[in-house]
Simulated assay, not measured.
Amino acid sequence: MPVLPGAEPYRHEGGEVGVLLCHGFTGSPQSLRPWAEYLAERGLTVSLPLLPGHGTRWQDMQVTGWQDWYAEVDRELRLLLERCTEVFVFGLSMGGALSLRLAAKHGDAVRGVVLVNPANKVHGLAAHALPVARFLLPTTKGIASDIAKDGSEEIGYDRVPLHAAHSMRRFFRLVDGELPQVTQPLLLLHSPNDHVVPPADSARILSRVSSTDVTEILLEQSYHVATLDHDADRIFEESYGFIGRLAPSAGKEGTATGG
């Protein structure tokens, strides 16, 4: 199945500091592409993979689960660690949960973590119905393009496959138990007016991680997909400043290799 135009993965070979970006559930690299390109223009080595089952049609996602999505970002992180002296992990929504698990599992190999509207739980009565409902109803209404900015759209599915949603719910519970293992410097940016992930998820993450270097920023002008919204420039600038503080060699040519 061909990838939707604009949803392709993105990679850039830059200097010795690398960044892995993880997109969200039913979304695609398109939601993070401007962020990835901003970092690449500043000399960083960047990897923005397409998660399995995403970026084509929802039917392809119905047969994937969290193990597939996590395996993809774990593989990309290992490739970056081979090329770069320091690596950061960034994530939006479910990509935030993927990033947190990478940080918990890889420890000091991950230099820092940046999260935008990270998801931690499937909320509401629907969450409790998922184990059964997924066998009765294949999909529910989509969650893509929660964006305040006129004319800005996210490439994502208009339906949520419930088998995949059930797997994501299990993944969130797993990651929640691993949050105390996250010790890296953390920058968390979240929107008070998010119609997909409530602010409670960010509060829960901040209360459970073991990181001591923590910065929280409110994105007052944006909805869920803040990387394509009014606060996008602020996200890009704050994250680059975060990297620069922790890895002063960011953007300089160094040990990064590959083609």
Rank of each mutant, 00 (worst) to 15 (best):
R101G: 00
L92P: 02
H128Q: 12
S93Q: 05
L20H: 04
G43M: 12
M94Y: 03
R101A: 10
W35G: 02
G112T: 13
L20W: 00
L79H: 12
A109W: 00
T64H: 12
N120G: 14
P34N: 12
F25K: 12
S47N: 09
S99L: 02
V113Y: 03
L77E: 01
M61I: 00
H23Q: 02
R42D: 09
E72H: 04
L98M: 09
G55L: 11
C22G: 07
A103L: 08
V132A: 08
S31G: 13
A129T: 03
E16T: 06
R11A: 13
L48W: 06
V87N: 03
G24D: 08
A127D: 06
A97D: 05
H106I: 08
G124D: 10
P29M: 15
A119E: 06
P29I: 15
Y70M: 04
A109Y: 00
E37P: 11
D108R: 15
L102E: 02
V116D: 07
G15V: 11
Q62E: 15
E82G: 10
T85Y: 00
W35R: 10
W66A: 08
S93F: 01
A129N: 00
V17T: 14
W58K: 03
Q67D: 10
E82T: 13
A104F: 04
E72L: 03
L39W: 15
H123V: 02
P34D: 13
F90H: 05
T56F: 04
Y38T: 11
H123F: 00
G14T: 02
